[in-house]
Each structure stands twice: as C-alpha cells, then as structure tokens.
Write a protein that binds this DNA or RNA. Structure first.
Lengths: 144, 144
DNA sequence: ATGGGTGCAAAGGATTTGCAACATT
DNA sequence: AATGTTGCAAATCCTTTGCACCCAT
C-alpha cells in the first residue's frame, strides 16, 4: 500500500516524506472522511513524534495538489477524502458523520472551466439530512 | 422591505423580533453571502445593543427554518444566503468571496428524499477556483 | 408572572504562526 | 552547506455556553 501512496504523491508533485506517505496511506485505506484530529490520533502510535501542525500542513498540501479532497460540509470541522473520484457526500446533521453516495449523479469536471470570467477547477455536491442510524434512534425514543 | 422580511419570518414560523427583522432585511437586500461578523458589523449602528451571540443564534435559527441558507463552502467561515432558490455557489480560493452562478444547473429538491435509508432534505452544489478579479491581479504581477 | 429573546463575559475548540531543530540531498 | 520538512508552544480567531436581564404577552 505504501508504494501506491508514494506513487500518488509523486504523481501529484509532492515529495514523499515519511509523514506524508503515512498520512496518504491512511487516507487510501480509510474511507471515513477523517478530520485532522482523527488522522493525528490514528498515526501517533506509528510516528511517535508526529505533530498536529504536520497533519494540518500535509492534508492542506494534499488538497492543494488534488491528491485528496477537502470537505467543508460540516460547519464545525473540515475533513478529508482520499477518494478523488467524483461522488456525492451526505452529511448527517444529527451525528455529524459524512457518507458517500456513489450512485447519485455527481458533477464531473474533466478540465478547468471558464464561467463568466471565473476559473473553476473543482466541483462538490453535498447532500444533508438525517442518517438511517439517527432516524432509528429517533423512532426508538418515540416508541420508548 | 421590512414588511417583506416580517412576512418571510412568519411564513417560516419565526417570531419577528426587532433583531430578527433587521437581520432578515439585511439578508434580503445584500447578496454578498455575509458572515456572522459582517452582519454584526453592518447592523451595529442600527441596533446599538446588538450582540454577536444574537446574530449567531438568529442566523442559525433562519437556516434551521429554511428562511436562509447556511453555506460552508469556505473552510474558515460560515456564511449565509438570503436567496433560498436553488443556485450554484462559487468560492474564490484566493480572496474568499462567494459568487452566485444562476445559469448553472443546480440540484433541486422538491421534497425530502430517502436514499439508502438516509433522509435527505437539502442539496448544495459548490464550485471552487479563482475569480476573475484575482486572475487579473495575477496577470498584472506577471506583467509588472 | 411567565416564557421567550437578548446580550455580556467567559469558555471552548479548531487552526495558524513563528521559530528552532532536524533530515536529506 | 543548503533546502525543505517537521514539531513545539503560543497566539488567534470563530463559535458556543451559562446566566442574568428584559420585553411582550
């Protein structure tokens, strides 16, 4: 897996340091849309000297180089997605989790577009609502 | 204008206090996607006792009642849109401004949808890139 | 008088900054 | 040696919370 992570970094024009490879590997094996904090906590055991600053810098670097997608769907926290294929993100307003909707039609941008003189290089479609788990909990409360 | 703001609040099931009417009026006359801070600063002269807390509470209340749209396109700050008709938002990564793209196809949700057991009640399409002004500035720098 | 609305001050969190230490070429 | 990378601590900024006051019903 690390080889693939290194490949992807190089393909995106990013120098593969130890920290960057670990963080990219994490993103490529966890499709949970982790926050900075989650990545940090998960990799601390692996890289004992890891700092939050590095995770912040690295994830930002990835998104700037389109090696990962920065998701701002949650008003409280930014999270990241290692799957750069276009797909819809669903945000649960109750529990704050982010889900992928792979079957929903997602906007695709094959190349940068000029719209009214503005240069568009990224498109994101967000759905929001209540996830099935939280719906079930609400039902339980009514029943109980 | 205030009459229309009051109408809209009542239609959304919100009690029209002095502060709420002023904030809604501001949203209905300024299509700049203001942040909490911008609304606060703009209305301080009008309502001398206005507090940031009230602006936070009020804008949140509006978005919960679909009287305004909360936009999380900018990683740094939440902003609000008084125009609740579906339209695409464009975010300039350089200057942070948010523009409306009225002619782009936007997702429309006429009623809540069930997707894989999740309840979807809101859809937002975000475009990101560099706005025309910032593009021009970059050109200037190259030329100069 | 009662309930909701407002506003202050303080707390809480997420993110950034400055700078020194470090690794790698 | 030179350049870019990392990490700590502090600073900053946005947002929420708790509580008291106030207004309107």
């Amino acid at each position: 897996m690390k080889e693939k992570a290194i490949e992807r970094l190089l393909a995106s024009g990013i120098k593969p340091s130890v920290q960057r490879v670990e963080i990219m590997t994490y993103l490529m094996t966890h499709f949970t849309h982790p926050t900075v904090e989650e990545v940090y906590k998960a990799l601390c055991p692996t890289i004992k000297t890891l700092s939050r600053t590095t995770v912040y810098n690295t994830l930002r670097l990835f998104s700037e180089h389109n090696a990962a997608t920065m998701i701002t769907i949650d008003e409280h926290r930014v999270c990241y997605d290692g799957d750069t294929h276009p797909h819809v993100h669903f945000f649960c307003k109750e529990c704050g989790r982010v889900f992928d909707f792979m079957d929903e039609p997602a906007p695709v941008l094959t190349q940068k577009r000029d719209i009214q003189g503005h240069l568009v290089d990224e498109m994101q479609l967000y759905y929001k609502g209540i996830c099935s788990d939280c719906l079930a909990k609400t039902e339980e409360q009514k029943a109980g």
